[in-house]
Amino acid sequence: MGVQKSTDSSSLAEVIDRILDKGIVIDAYARVSVVGIEILTVEARVVIASVDTWLRYAEAVGLLRDELEDEELSLENQENERNPQFSI
């Protein structure tokens, strides 16, 4: 066969393309965004009781939010630890 399926773990780019913001995504203070084309899309608004119970990198550095909030400003000095490819 001419083109073989490469195994799912072999390419970092392919992994990034999926695991950061697809599947079940938990957003603090999130706007619910719906992608129109997927037929299996389930739009769920399950509210988890408290931020206290949960930690997520993306939230901590504002990856999923448009505007900076005060608490994030204190995280700014951690910015240089960020992998540049996630600064998009």
Binding site: V42, E43, V51
Partner: peptide
Amino acid sequence: FINIRLTVEEA
């Protein structure tokens, strides 16, 4: 093909 968005509320 699975798009479930959960919201975490501030306590």
